[in-house]
Nucleic acid binder design. Structure first.
Lengths: 252, 252
DNA sequence: TAGATTGTTAATCGATTAACAATC
DNA sequence: TAGATTGTTAATCGATTAACAATC
């Protein structure tokens, strides 16, 4: 397999699809700031400092100022940030002022939970459709929404102007579903299937793997209980035992 | 608020709770390798190269080798990795060979979906309990498991040797639940509530915010449609409009 | 004014990627 | 052997944090 050519020193990347100004991690934190500021406003706060906001969001004050600087100047020197103003700026930048129709593919446990989840609607995400390939699931009502057949996917996306799709299918179906979503005009995908999906440039994908999250935690537990070698070394094992050079060894 | 003292140059951190050898991001990828290797083994592959594994997992081959190096030597120079051997090494390191009893707090849509989710059981996570504060939910059966009252939490954790807790409650209850989980002996928390929870050192927390994931995607859409200023600058706004210095301004 | 706080630059940290010597 | 591939080091990249001049 061809070795990747070394990138010419100092070359700047062309940034496919135009420059993305705010890093995803910062966008996610801005969303958190928006939530805690909403609470702060309800509690009567008119202004907050970066120190205060950092405390509410559980991050560093420098990071708050850095994140907010992506929005352009939003505060007042020596005073802080006007809560209402800041809420407005974040809301506009992140699209929280709009409604985003979403289609969920897969009406299994996870898909139904998402369709029912009030936290999504509260932040402008409207479940415009819930489809499933299983005919026995079609017609069931979930959170006031009838499950539609998979064949309805394309029409539904076009009619209801869906831009965001959620994949809540088994891993085996994920890529095919992603292809159909993209072909039908979806521009962003949230993937809950435990398999990566490939998409053309310009389409955004976020992946959430619930089992993987738990696995990281179980590793922490293993680490905590297994007694650590102080020197951080591993026992040198005698490498892999007796490699069979691939005689197509009948999958056990 | 006291400015953080500058860290003395060159000082190494004491690493609370002992050195954590493998970074979380690498642990998550190791989990992915485990999954794709399981498929590869079933398909008859006895060995894989880092290039092949990278292709299956959708990452860089250098990264595969780096990640695997955390396990100590696992491959054979000039040949590659023995699939079965590698599965074993990853499984032991991540705790995939054990059963992990898990308690889920909150039997709303998300909690019930998680309790029903077969992908968890498939990877060794056994839902040992599902509790809810709402008496009308108690007694219902979800995925063969009866919802128990919140009061049963501590007893359940002790009896069933639960080490991992999942918070699937509203934001308002998250911190109190976290405190009770930790007090009862839970050492790792997966938090689905849209609020950060504080825990004592030594306890691991992972946070998943479904609405935040969608918000990042909606931002991408806003960016894609809003025409970008070529120079990457922002229009200089006249800063925040007329700051009222906090006269307790009756929540609008 | 004196005190407070932003916006930004520089320093630090950590994670990813490229390169290559070792060697099967 | 010649070709392939690991394990690891060095280079790069990006994100976080500290520091501070500007100034309300």
């Amino acid at each position: 397999m061809a070795r990747r050519a070394p990138r010419p020193a100092g070359a700047t990347l062309p940034a496919p699809g135009g420059p993305r100004r705010i890093p995803d991690a910062a966008v996610a934190r801005l969303g958190t700031y928006h939530r805690v500021l909403t609470d702060a406003l309800a509690a009567g706060s008119c202004t907050v400092s970066s120190e205060q906001l950092a405390g509410l969001a559980g991050v560093n004050a420098s990071q708050v100022r850095k994140d907010l600087s992506y929005l352009g100047p939003t505060g007042t020197l020596g005073v802080g940030y006007d809560v209402e103003h800041l809420l407005g700026r974040i809301g506009v930048e992140l699209g929280l002022t709009r409604h985003w129709p979403v289609v969920i593919v897969g009406a299994g446990n996870l898909g139904r939970a998402l369709a029912n989840y009030r936290g999504l609607a509260a932040r402008g995400f409207v479940v415009a459709g819930l489809v499933d390939a299983d005919p026995t699931k079609v017609g069931r009502t979930v959170g006031g929404l009838a499950v539609e057949p998979l064949e309805a996917l394309e029409g539904l996306i076009a009619e209801r102007r869906v831009r965001i799709g959620v994949i809540a299918t088994p891993a085996s179906a994920a890529q095919e579903v992603a292809d159909r979503l993209v072909a039908a005009g979806v521009r962003a995908i949230l993937n809950f299937a435990p398999a990566p999906v490939g998409v053309p440039p310009g389409v955004s994908v976020r992946k959430v793997d619930l089992a993987l999250e738990l696995q990281v935690l179980s590793y922490h537990q293993v680490r905590a209980t297994t007694r650590t070698r102080g020197d951080g070394t591993h026992p040198r094992r005698a490498a892999a035992p007796a490699l069979r050079p691939d005689p197509r060894g009948a999958g056990r």
